[in-house]
């Protein structure tokens, strides 16, 4: 447990780098990542936990960064889309036409990447459950499904 009051300099572990940031207790992780570290891959879409555009990984698990206080992320490993370096899901999203406008893409990529890491052989119902957390308004979702299945099957 941390106890914070007023403004504090704290350290965040983001994409395997340690960064100093200045936070208030009420600061939300999404805003800290974007405004202080310039990691704008995480997008605000609803700031209410409904859309998933702001998804990041916390110790490998997808979390909506609009619902997490920055202080809650202290001591944890944060991965944003900028931390994905040529992982298969990026290639799969391109080849399977799994995005159009690209705004929800960072969030979906991180959910899919975590799914493949945590559940390498998920039944369909698990894929559905995981990916229902996010909204894409451009594609039909079928393309995103094709992309995640392509990495799970080893096709990509």
């Amino acid at each position: 447990m941390y106890s914070l009051k007023g403004k504090n300099i704290v350290q965040l572990n983001v994409n395997k780098e340690i960064h100093d940031v200045v936070i208030r207790p009420s600061d939300v992780l999404l805003n800290t990542l974007r405004d202080q570290l310039g990691l704008t891959g995480a997008k605000p879409g609803c700031e209410n936990g409904d859309c998933g555009a702001c998804t990041v990984l916390i110790d490998g698990w997808p979390v909506k960064s609009c619902l997490m206080l920055t202080v809650e992320a202290l001591g944890k490993k944060i991965t944003t889309v900028e931390g994905l370096k040529n992982v298969p899901i990026q290639k799969a999203f391109i080849e399977k036409f799994a995005f159009q406008c690209g705004y929800c893409t960072s969030g979906f990529l991180l959910v899919c990447h975590a799914l493949a890491t945590i559940h390498p052989y998920p039944p369909d119902i698990v894929i559905d459950e995981w990916l229902q957390s996010n909204i894409c308004r451009c594609t039909s979702y079928e393309e995103i499904g094709n992309a995640v299945r392509a990495i799970l099957s080893g096709e990509i």
Binding site: D35, G38, T40, A42, V81, E82, E95, G102
Partner: peptide, 21 residues
């Protein structure tokens, strides 16, 4: 044809209005 900006959109590199901080 793969869209021209594909790489930017899977890396967080594509900038939208609100990303210009």
């Amino acid at each position: 044809v793969i869209r021209k900006e594909a790489c930017n959109k899977v890396t967080g590199d594509a900038k939208y209005t609100n990303d210009f901080i």
